[in-house]
Design a protein around this nucleic acid. Structure first.
Length: 202
DNA sequence: AACACGCACAACCGCCTAGTG
DNA sequence: ACACTAGGCGGTTGTGCGTGT
């Protein structure tokens, strides 16, 4: 329960990393591996706390990190997984090779969250808004999610053993179906031309 | 050209949890 | 069983950059 004392130590550098610090960290880890993060800064000659080193390495310096814009597929995956897992960024990141939880979290907060709000989603609960038109894109997304998860079951079956997640998924799909049917029956004149739901797959 | 504003993202903070003695 | 620690995670903040006025 105790707080890691490394962050409380005074005299350790904070803020942006310099190229020289990056080089030191990369060089050390390439030579020795990271081992104990707490011990690493001293061994590598860095005036940083271990936590800072770990973060810098895992979020930025790691050689297998994929940088650049998120693809449509990645965006779709994030949306779908978030609707099931919520803000479990590290869990979501395991499905996106080369992407870090921090990167996904940032992408969500700066892009996807706004996008969902615009489309009539509540980004936190993934519940549709009360008015049906604004919720339609979400219903379609949920139906989509069902499709995607069915595919995932083939490829990543072992990753979906969490029964709660599976149950949530089933419930979400049920809800989507019910509400979508409700929409179909209640609507006579489809007038919502403001936006084409980007989540709609062919 | 100068300033204000908003956005994107790197980095930090503090809490939680698994592991160990 | 308990105390303690390191590492991991999610939320939040700070900063640099681009764009609009």
């Amino acid at each position: 329960m105790g707080r890691s004392p490394c962050c409380d130590e005074n005299g350790l550098k904070k803020g942006p990393w310099t190229p020289e610090e990056d080089q030191r960290l990369i060089h050390y880890i390439e030579q020795h591996g990271h081992g104990s993060w707490r011990a690493l800064p001293k061994l590598a000659g860095l005036n940083r706390c271990g936590k800072s080193c770990r973060l810098r390495w895992t979020n930025y310096l790691r050689p297998d990190i994929k940088r650049g814009k998120f693809s449509q597929e990645e965006e779709q995956t994030i949306l779908n997984l978030h609707s099931i897992l919520g803000n479990k960024w590290s869990a979501i990141a395991t499905h996106l090779p080369g992407r870090t939880d921090n990167e996904i979290k940032n992408f969500w907060n700066t892009h996807l969250k706004k996008k969902l709000i615009q489309m009539g989603f509540d980004p936190m609960t993934h519940r549709p808004r009360t008015d049906l038109f604004s919720s339609l894109p979400q219903l379609i997304a949920l139906a989509n999610l069902n499709k995607e998860l069915m595919m995932m079951d083939h490829h990543h079956h072992q990753q979906w053993e969490d029964h709660a997640a599976v149950r949530l998924q089933a419930e979400a799909v049920q809800l989507a179906k019910l509400q979508y049917l409700q929409y179909i029956f209640q609507t006579t004149t489809p007038t919502n031309t403001t936006s084409t739901p980007p989540l709609l797959n062919p």
